[in-house]
Computed example of a mutant assay.
Amino acid sequence: MAETSAQEQTTATNNSPANVEVDTSFENDSSYGDELSSYTASLTSSVLDYRHENGRRYHGYHDGSYLLPNDETENDRLDMVHELCLQVLHRKLYLAPINKPQRVIDLATGTGIWAIDFADLHPQAEVIGCDLSPTQPSLVPPNVKFLVDDIESEWAYEKNPFDFIHARNLFVSIRDFPRLVQQCYRSVKPGGWVEFQDLDGYPHSEDGSLNGTALETYYNEVYGAFEKAGYETRPGPKLEQWLKDAGFVNVHAERFILPYGVWPKDKHLKKVGAWNQAQAEANGFEAGALAALTRHKQWTKEEVLILASQARADGRNRNIHMFFNFYVVYGQRPEN
């Protein structure tokens, strides 16, 4: 059964009427159990009431607040992105100097793979993964649990805060990053750490080889649609200041190069580039563009697929030296 969201819990607390009227239509414990089962089944149904559109499946809970699919094809790609991030960070799940954390949350956990790996690494920790979609596996370490929640809604974690809050690749997913960072500050223990790993979503090339390509057109059009819908597409370079503004101390920011393809000479960057290209070719171009362009720029499905195909073809051109900037930023809530 999907758990109710932090938003629902907070709303129930803050907006409770002075007197709650009792439903007297059920007169005994047995009928109450039937009513409870019916109600919880309805809640579960609403979470699983996915949107099906243009041949892809999208989340049902808070429908429309996240523009990428949640089907098996996308989940497989997200697991590839997890491996890509491990390659970038030399197999490290995080960089913050945490010490024996007891309570941890992974925001927008996706397939839950980061939370599962972290739980295996820290068996003493209670690890929570929250996401709009209950698409995580059921066979997980005993110290992991998953919640259905919208991290841009009001939280209810302040009275039971975390030692470590982790979030990765929230670009094109969040409308108000500063508010999210402030919520993290309120929900982490004094002395606890928060870490964001995120992109500047727009690609670059040092030699101008990206200019005028279908790849450049793809990202300009797709991110233009996300920005039209109010989403942040370039959080990476802004995270350091957002953490400082929220009150975090000992803030550390590090930038990593994320090539696309195997064009770099450096062996590590070549491997990173290969993983980046692999995840994008695993329907990544289509996944990133379909909902954004059809819902917010009125493109047809066929137009989106043509653009995605052209971008994919350009991505295989080793004369186009595209890369992204990937940022890891962590900070500590002051002890006092």
Score class of each variant (00 low, 15 high):
277 Q>V: 03
23 D>I: 14
92 K>D: 07
41 A>Q: 08
303 E>V: 09
12 A>S: 13
313 A>G: 01
296 H>K: 05
137 P>E: 14
220 N>C: 05
330 Y>L: 07
317 N>E: 09
200 D>H: 03
130 C>L: 14
55 G>L: 01
309 S>A: 14
113 I>F: 04
301 K>P: 01
77 R>D: 09
209 S>P: 04
160 N>S: 15
45 S>L: 08
138 S>D: 15
94 Y>I: 10
183 Q>W: 03
276 N>H: 15
83 E>P: 00
115 A>K: 07
133 S>I: 02
95 L>Q: 13
19 N>M: 12
211 N>L: 12
328 V>H: 00
108 A>L: 03
95 L>T: 13
103 R>G: 11
162 F>W: 03
4 T>P: 02
298 Q>T: 06
283 N>R: 13
326 F>C: 03
100 K>L: 09
181 V>H: 02
150 D>F: 02
202 Y>S: 13
322 M>V: 15
314 D>C: 08
133 S>E: 12
331 G>P: 01
262 V>R: 06
227 E>I: 00
326 F>K: 03
140 V>M: 10
60 G>S: 09
315 G>T: 11
212 G>N: 08
329 V>C: 09
102 Q>C: 13
195 E>A: 05
246 A>E: 10
4 T>R: 15
313 A>S: 12
23 D>R: 00
47 V>W: 03
234 R>W: 04
85 C>G: 05
10 T>C: 11
103 R>Q: 11
205 S>F: 04
172 V>M: 08
103 R>F: 09
310 Q>N: 15
254 E>P: 00
224 G>N: 04
21 E>H: 00
48 L>W: 10
123 P>H: 12
183 Q>E: 12
57 R>I: 11
24 T>M: 07
258 L>Q: 10
180 L>G: 04
203 P>M: 11
76 D>H: 01
144 V>Q: 12
215 L>P: 01
19 N>Y: 13
115 A>F: 12
147 L>G: 04
295 R>G: 06
336 N>K: 15
24 T>Q: 05
25 S>C: 09
145 K>P: 00
42 S>W: 05
183 Q>N: 11
179 R>N: 11
223 Y>F: 15
186 R>T: 05
180 L>A: 02
297 K>H: 10
266 D>N: 13
64 G>C: 05
226 F>D: 02
177 F>C: 01
101 P>G: 07
121 L>F: 01
225 A>L: 03
127 V>L: 08
28 N>R: 00
90 H>G: 12
193 W>H: 13
114 W>P: 03
2 A>N: 14
92 K>P: 01
93 L>D: 06
158 E>W: 01
223 Y>S: 14
322 M>E: 15
97 P>V: 14
62 H>M: 15
124 Q>V: 14
258 L>W: 02
142 P>G: 08
228 K>W: 01
117 D>W: 00
81 V>S: 07
262 V>K: 06
48 L>H: 09
189 K>E: 14
35 E>S: 12
332 Q>M: 11
113 I>T: 03
330 Y>A: 06
